[in-house]
């Protein structure tokens, strides 16, 4: 009896304010989609960071006879002594986990393998163009500057290349995207809250006769308010469901594509996406219900 009565009142309320309900659902859907998108990007970035932190390395290129840089032209090709000295110094640094010496032949072979799908590039280079180098694995990836500083500019060292700098730019872009999405999401959520407040107010007004009688015959406050709260919750839930669709689409069409461009071997698990959707749904329902409740306290005094 109770459940049926409350549900039918809820349904009547939703239908009576159909245009407002649609506006609420749309706003909630857009704001939650942006919010969920922000969360997804956030998760993606932190996963990629972790992935790269495990693999990040510095490469210390040594000078050869053909090196074109100024540093090398001053000091000439690296000598055997310089190589041993640098290797020793690197190994003594706390921030360094391991140092591996790569000869010019190995570097060339590695290069050929890595760009095997780009024959023009491979054919344009020859053995010796890729200088011999040290691959330095860092114990703490954030400390790359200290390691770079220790060897850069020393005789025999051509340059120190650092994957991190390139990645940070990319991560910075994603971070910016995330914050933009979240800020827009919160503005939209605020707009959604105002809309819901208005809708519930209209709904309460159009049913003031019923609620007046309910009050008079001693219906409990909860019972009087429940249809309105459910009205808000249903709108929030529908908005959330639509937003879930957007979130899944964002993952398939945006994040997965970004990964394939950058050849990152990190995909968000279905679980991660599901948790983002869950959070969005809960946020949608809570936002709508709480706003309805606050509105009712003002317009449905008991």
């Amino acid at each position: 009896m109770r459940a049926q009565f409350v549900l039918s009142e809820t349904w009547i309320g939703l239908r009576r304010n159909l245009t407002m309900t649609i506006a609420v659902i749309t706003t909630v859907a857009i704001s939650l989609a942006l919010f969920g998108g922000g969360l997804l990007i956030n998760q993606q970035v932190s996963q990629m960071r972790q992935f790269w932190d495990d693999r990040i390395s510095l490469t210390v290129y040594m000078c050869t006879d053909t090196s074109p840089s100024n540093a090398c032209e001053e000091n000439g090709a690296a000598t055997e002594d310089e190589r041993t000295q640098i290797q020793q110094d690197l190994e003594q640094l706390d921030e360094v986990q391991s140092v591996e010496y790569v000869t010019a032949e190995e570097a060339w072979a590695d290069f050929q393998e890595r760009f095997s799908n780009n024959r023009a590039l491979v054919e344009a280079t020859q053995e010796g163009d890729i200088p011999d180098n040290f691959r330095v694995q860092l114990a703490d990836p954030t400390q790359y500057e200290a390691v770079t500083g220790a060897v850069e500019g020393r005789p025999g060292v051509d340059s120190v290349s650092n994957d991190q700098a390139v990645l940070e730019q990319f991560f910075g872009l994603l971070d910016g995207l995330k914050w933009a999405a979240l800020v827009v999401a919160f503005v939209q959520l605020a707009a959604a809250a105002l809309l819901i407040g208005n809708t519930i107010r209209l709904s309460a007004y159009s049913r003031r006769r019923e609620t007046g009688i309910m009050r008079l015959v001693g219906a409990s406050n909860f019972y009087i308010q429940l249809p309105f709260l459910l009205e808000g919750a249903v709108a929030g839930l529908l908005g959330g469901i639509i937003a879930s669709g957007f979130i899944v689409a964002a993952r398939v069409f945006l994040l997965d594509r970004i990964q394939s461009w950058f050849q990152f071997d990190v995909t968000l698990t279905a679980g991660a996406v599901a948790s983002v959707i869950g959070v969005s749904l809960i946020l949608g329902v809570l936002l709508c219900t709480v706003t309805s409740f606050l509105t009712l306290r003002r317009y449905l005094r008991v």
Binding site: M1, R2, R209, I213, L216, V217, G218, A219, Y223
Partner: peptide, 24 residues
Amino acid sequence: FRLLPNKNVFENVAFALEVIGKPR
């Protein structure tokens, strides 16, 4: 009077019991 115009006599009277949760 304060009756609900979209409900008939029976429903108007029953409304007072429905909203305090009396069984059907």
